[in-house]
Write a protein that binds this DNA or RNA. Structure first.
Lengths: 257, 257
DNA sequence: GCTTATGGTG
DNA sequence: CACCATAAGC
């Protein structure tokens, strides 16, 4: 099974890139974040030629997640079910071939001193409880998406400059780590612990891509039984260099199941 | 000498269309209106490959005129010099090969009952005085641009419906006619008095182009000695059918000088 | 920088 | 319908 994740930063603007990538890479599952389209305007027709089944939940302007899969999902779940904000434009879970796949667009958090950052930290806490409720660390499961966390110093350019950045701050990395500790392994780190490879380069620094000033904040994780079967992981940088790119690019993993 | 005029409706948005047209038609002079770009942001670099000399004056958001010429102008004059509003983002005059060329983007006038319409009528009056001051009807001179006037019934679809339209109202046509009477001849009318050919089709009516519901409001005029040497005039409709078009298209004239 | 939304212009 | 400006989010 080949699974990929991509923060599209507007699905409508990125349709050519998504369609090209599906045709070339033929993943079994592609998780998308920041579709930025409400369900009534979701571009189903434009994606139909791909032949993928599509599960999605969005809203106006912001957020929005979708899962494209070669097989139809056996089950679909939107958002949290803990009584808080449902966040179904940020959290989508499907079951495919009996394997639960969780797609998240985790809140970015704005600034360390802001309520939004506290909300982000709480979001990871809720997610860990969600895993406890719905998944088992001893059974196959996949979690992927834009986590808005660079877990290690080598996952961000100039880490010392970003100690107070909401995607690298100690508290954020700790809560992320604790969420993983429930039972998820980062398959990129597992296979290539020394590889420095980013998945996001800010639009704002024009030279960010050329100078490779990026962040690894898009991740694919698997529970132990599945992580052991991960045969390959790779980041495809080419779509970031394409015309009218997202500020993120694709990361994909292959599992021998 | 081949001279053309085109209301670009944002030069930045229309760069591909302008560059293509220059490369294909190779006019000696191209007058542009509604560049909608202030001078500090004028896309000189993007136009440089054309090899044309560029004279321009613009402002934020609205108006803006430019003249592209194969030869450098021998003189350049911006706006009125009568002590009123200078209007240099609407009026540009250059001298090329000894021939004065006046490029105007005449105010549209909003509605008949509005002060803007009175301003438009006054603008034509000022322009006539400008011609008296700076030009001679017995010497070669060219005036072109977006005049926001359909001079004859056949220059607008359903003229009877537009009697109170600021681009067809009796008063506007009269003041335009009086400005011409100073000494300018419409070379399109001179050469092809019976030809019905529009230069503008509103974006708002989606079928305006297909149904040919347009206006002839972009004009090329010449003083008598030059008008007599006009060998050809044509409207090129193709750019209006191109991808991301302006709502106007090019009109050009050839003079045997 | 690039996306979104809104409100104003012709 | 397609521009413009502004403001928000990342």
């Amino acid at each position: 099974m080949k699974i990929a994740t991509f923060n599209v930063n507007s699905l409508r603007k990125r349709l050519p890139i998504v369609l090209d990538w599906l045709a070339q890479q033929k993943p079994d599952v592609l998780c998308l974040q920041e579709t930025k389209v409400q369900d009534s305007e979701f571009p189903l027709l434009a994606l139909a030629p791909s032949g993928y089944h599509i599960t999605f939940r969005g809203m106006k302007s912001y957020n929005g997640v979708a899962i494209l899969s070669r097989k139809p999902p056996e089950a679909v779940f939107h958002g949290f079910d803990d009584g808080g904000e449902s966040e179904d434009a940020r959290l989508l879970r499907v079951v495919i071939d009996g394997i639960p796949i969780v797609n998240t667009y985790v809140p970015q958090g704005f600034e360390i001193d802001s309520p939004k950052y506290q909300y982000k930290l709480g979001w990871y806490e809720r997610l860990r409880q969600y895993f406890e409720k719905h998944l088992s660390p001893t059974k196959p499961a996949i979690w992927c998406g834009d986590m808005n966390i660079a877990p290690r110093p080598m996952d961000v350019h100039s880490p010392e400059k970003h100690l107070k950045h909401v995607c690298y701050h100690e508290d954020a990395r700790k809560v992320y780590e604790r969420t993983l500790a429930w039972g998820f392994q980062d398959v990129f780190v597992k296979l290539y612990p020394d590889r420095r490879q980013y998945t996001f380069w800010d639009y704002r620094a024009p030279s960010s891509l050329e100078a490779n000033k990026g962040w690894r904040i898009d991740h694919i994780l698997a529970t132990a039984p599945l992580a052991e079967q991960c045969t390959r992981v790779d980041v495809d940088v080419e779509p970031r260099r394409a015309k009218d790119p997202s500020d993120h690019t694709f990361i994909w993993a292959e599992f021998s199941v």
